[in-house]
Design a protein around this nucleic acid. Structure first.
Lengths: 247, 247
DNA sequence: CGCATCGTTGATGGGGATCAATAGCTGTGG
DNA sequence: CCACAGCTATTGATCCCCATCAACGATGCG
């Protein structure tokens, strides 16, 4: 357990500041949260379906994702998470997990006890609102993903996903110049947008062929942001960022 | 504006009680909420994309649904709502609407000013948690719908939707004996599960042919609940009901 | 260097979109 | 009370997007 975790929790503060304005008192309360740091290898479950967590997981470094498994091994990826996110914040008020949370890359996470967070919410209505709001943005992204999966073409789905991830990274200062890390495999993308991995492969080739983007190694480079957002029918309103401006 | 709205707000209390236990003090505070009642015809928007609502909408009677519109008139239905629901509770902390809320049937709604709700959250941490939790269940349902749309067969999607709606109605005491109102058109179902209305029609015939259910007029009768939940891979955990028991 | 994971390619078939036409149902007004 | 309009449900025909299966490179890691 670490109590000198100002730097770690600074990331949480930065995240909250992409959504609200954090006062000094709130900032200090956040920095006083007791946390347990942990390193995780890639693709290891952090919390599982059926668990009753007693803490939340703040992602400090690396990527994570949530998913559900169905019969016959089918998988639906529900969300992607980057540093600053608390992917299982809902466990604060929903005692039993209805899905899994896993690391995507090697990760550093900080566990925050529910007790400490609930304490915070009792004393800082502003932070309660901020955390609540964070879960509401989460839900807003779910709604957009539903729309993505249900009603867009495969090409639209992939480009929409990339637009969203780039913007999320950009808001946290983790991406510039329309380029960013992209550690998803093609199978991950497939399970996020509801198509087969083979089809993802073919549509990615088409996107490359059209010169819209490059995806090599673990890196995404967007060559024509405006055109990409057009193909994706991407409207960033649903991310509810304080400033959604990206040239 | 009506201040003698105990009966109306009793519905909200009943809804919250499907999720948490409401204390007497909380109950009284809820019953003191100032509300404005309104009648709505079927299929009329209540709140629209881009709006900045200053109140939340408690559904007293009838069904409502949320949806997004895309290019070329494509529509994705995001959720279905029944009496007791507050379909736009997220507007309490997300000032701008990223989707539309519309009546499905003729409705009676009660508008509750944001001010009054925010006041409540300042004085009743338990109610804050309850309302927060309500939006978290909302999100849990979104996750399940994502999975439904992304990874289940069309037959699985339809049956899953019916299982969910029946259970939600049952929890509110609005359905018994595996039968309930079902005012969705086939096009509504199609836009909820991400297929075409023609295909919905054909799969419904198959369901009828297999004797699993009857769907005539505006009424759904489930003939074999166990079998239906099997075909749907339906696991009610994601609804986070206090008691999910249905024979 | 060998194994595992990931990416790529080809062939094949089916689920489901799309278009179009007809029939049924409901409310409305003359 | 009937006629009409408009919506909803149904059916048929056609086509293609994409799942699936299978095989083969490529890449990275212990």
């Amino acid at each position: 357990m670490s109590f000198a975790a100002g730097a770690d929790l600074g990331l949480l503060i930065r995240k909250l500041e992409t959504i609200i304005t954090v006062s000094d008192a709130e900032r200090q309360a956040l920095e006083r949260l007791p946390i347990t740091r942990r390193q995780m290898p890639a693709r290891q479950d952090i919390v599982r379906y059926g668990d009753h967590p007693s803490q939340c997981c703040l992602l400090l470094d690396g990527w994570a994702f949530r998913y559900k498994l169905l019969d016959e091994g089918k998988r639906q990826i529900l969300s992607m998470h980057i540093p600053g996110d608390i992917p299982d914040l809902q466990s604060l008020h929903l005692p039993v997990m209805d899905h899994n949370l896993s690391s995507l890359t090697p990760c550093t996470v900080a566990f925050i006890p529910h007790d400490a967070l609930l304490d915070l919410t009792r004393n800082f209505p502003g932070l309660t609102a901020a955390l609540w709001r964070d879960t509401l943005v989460d839900a807003a992204i779910f709604r957009e993903w539903m729309t993505n999966i249900g009603r867009r073409s495969t090409l639209g789905r992939i480009t929409h996903l990339f637009c969203e991830l780039y913007l999320k990274l950009h808001a946290m200062g983790l991406a510039e110049n329309h380029a960013c890390e992209m550690p998803l495999t093609q199978s991950d993308i497939a399970d996020a947008i509801g198509v087969s991995n083979v089809h993802v492969n073919r549509v990615l080739q088409e996107l490359r062929g059209q010169g819209l983007l490059t995806l090599q190694g673990q890196r995404l480079v967007i060559h024509d942001w405006v055109q990409l957002t057009k193909r994706a029918e991407f409207d960033p309103a649903y991310l509810h960022l304080k400033s959604a401006a990206v040239s």
